[in-house]
């Protein structure tokens, strides 16, 4: 059970993700498992990337999609729980403050669903990625 004041963020040491065609594509850099998050998954991933609180994300979804709050809350808790279990996101102490405003025309809601792909396992078993590489290059890219 997530609290409205729980802030979430991407676990950057372990995951990289982006949104395309409205879906989030996420890669677990440690296990090689990768994911697509369908439905309104792209919006959810973008909000987690912006370090939004659970309550703020729920407000945003209800404001922009034609969905009951209780349904949206259950779906968001479910998918956030999956992302937490997979180590792709984590709790953070603080984040960005947003106030959701109701959209004039609400979009059609589609349940966020996490699809898991494990077909990289054989490749990585043969030639596993070296741990730590991502963090090293990441530090540098911000300084250049």
């Amino acid at each position: 059970m997530l609290n409205p004041s729980d802030y979430l963020e991407v676990n950057l040491e372990r995951a990289a993700g982006d949104v395309i065609d409205g879906e989030a594509i996420i890669i677990n850099l440690e296990t090689g498992v990768y994911y697509s998050m369908q439905g309104i998954g792209g919006d959810i991933w973008a909000m987690i990337g912006a370090r939004r609180s659970f309550g703020s994300m729920l407000d945003e979804i209800v404001a922009h999609y034609d969905v009951d709050r209780s349904v949206a809350q259950t779906d968001l808790e479910t998918v956030a729980g999956q992302l937490l279990d997979e180590g792709l996101i984590r709790f953070t102490g603080s984040g960005s403050a947003y106030g959701a405003r109701n959209a004039e025309t609400k979009k059609q809601y589609a349940t966020p669903q996490l699809q898991v792909y494990r077909d990289m396992q054989d490749l990585l078993a043969l030639d596993p990625p070296a741990p730590g590489m991502n963090q090293i290059a990441w530090q540098r890219s911000g300084s250049k």
Binding site: L12, A16, D18, I27, L29, Y34, Y117, M133, A137, W138
Partner: peptide, 20 residues
């Protein structure tokens, strides 16, 4: 993206978030 990114990023392309 699903065909291109996972194996590229897991094997070679860095930093992962920028490359993705």
């Amino acid at each position: 993206l699903l065909a291109l990114a996972p194996s590229s990023i897991l094997k070679r392309a860095v930093p992962a978030a920028d490359a993705l």
